[in-house]
């Protein structure tokens, strides 16, 4: 039982970080209908940039972290400006593949600038683990979970209450009608990319402060896809619920299945979940079923 508690707590907290990254995906999807397949690479490059700031340049955390977020926002702006904007209104195939091109490019750039394949970030949170019942959790995990929840609440409020959030939802409904109101739609897209990248940066830092910076971070981004698929592409609530579910499945399932099957079974669980969801409930737990007409 203690074992189960341990798996569960690790799973839920790490799942919250997946959820955080997934929120960025949902943000872009909601406001522009673009599927951002660069997530994994973005997480990777932001983690390395954090390494560059905190370790290579030796900045203190209070200075380094804002710089990282700033950098992320800049990257978001750049990606939207260069790759996505010329393709506004193009078929979904082009929109998906252009993000793949961006992913490729970023991957190349990372190995260009940071040829090392692994690195560790300095500890951002205190060392001593926290005891939750019989289970032991390191503080990083808890912080990650707390930050995710806070950001989720903020984002939800933003979309419900803030002018820009409302307009972002409007753009998802009818781009041209928003334009007719004299609103710069391209700027809205740009903002949502900037937000999403900032989220990916925070998620990346949390992930890599837990597990170090490796190429495996790209797969963390891919796990965020399983979160959005399970939760529903256009639902923040879906992301925040599905994240812990994926994390739980990965850790509990991995913990108990490994002796029965092959080692490393936990890596594959999110992808199996994707396939299962795809077969039984493709729009996810909370996603809107889109009505299509000819």
């Amino acid at each position: 039982m203690a074992e189960f508690g341990q798996f569960a707590i690790t799973g839920v907290t790490v799942g919250m970080v997946y959820a955080l990254i997934a929120l960025g995906f949902v943000l872009i999807w909601k406001s522009s209908g673009v599927a951002n397949l660069t997530l994994g690479q973005l997480v990777l490059v932001f983690s390395w940039f954090t390494y560059g700031m905190l370790v290579q340049a030796g900045f203190p955390v209070w200075l380094g972290m804002p710089l990282v977020v700033l950098f992320a926002v800049g990257v978001g702006w750049l990606v939207e400006r260069i790759a996505l904007r010329p393709l506004i209104g193009q078929p979904i195939l082009s929109l998906i593949t252009v993000t793949l091109g961006v992913a490729f490019f970023i991957e190349g750039m990372v190995s260009f600038i940071w040829p090392k394949s692994v690195a560790a970030l300095p500890r951002l949170f205190p060392d001593e683990p926290v005891h939750v019942g019989a289970a032991v959790v390191s503080q990083e995990y808890l912080w990650a979970a707390v930050i995710s929840v806070v950001l989720f609440v903020l984002l939800t409020l933003f979309f419900k209450r803030h002018r820009m959030g409302i307009v972002m939802r409007a753009v998802a409904d009818d781009q041209m009608a928003v334009q007719a109101c004299g609103i710069p739609v391209a700027q809205i897209f740009s903002r949502s990319w900037m937000f999403a990248c900032a989220l990916a940066a925070v998620g990346g830092v949390l992930m890599s402060s837990i597990g170090g910076i490796t190429f495996g971070l790209v797969e963390t981004g891919l796990k965020a896809f399983s979160v959005v698929i399970l939760g529903g592409l256009d639902s923040f609530l879906g992301a925040i619920v599905a994240g812990p579910i994926i994390g739980l499945a990965e850790n509990v399932g991995g913990g108990y299945l490994t002796p029965l099957t092959w080692p490393g079974v936990r890596e594959i669980i999110p992808f199996v979940i994707i396939v299962i969801v795809m077969f039984i409930r493709p729009h996810g737990l909370f996603g809107e079923r889109r009505i299509e007409r000819i």
Partner: peptide, 10 residues
Amino acid sequence: TGLGPMVFGL
């Protein structure tokens, strides 16, 4: 190692 992916992505 980085040049290839960068060129192809571009």
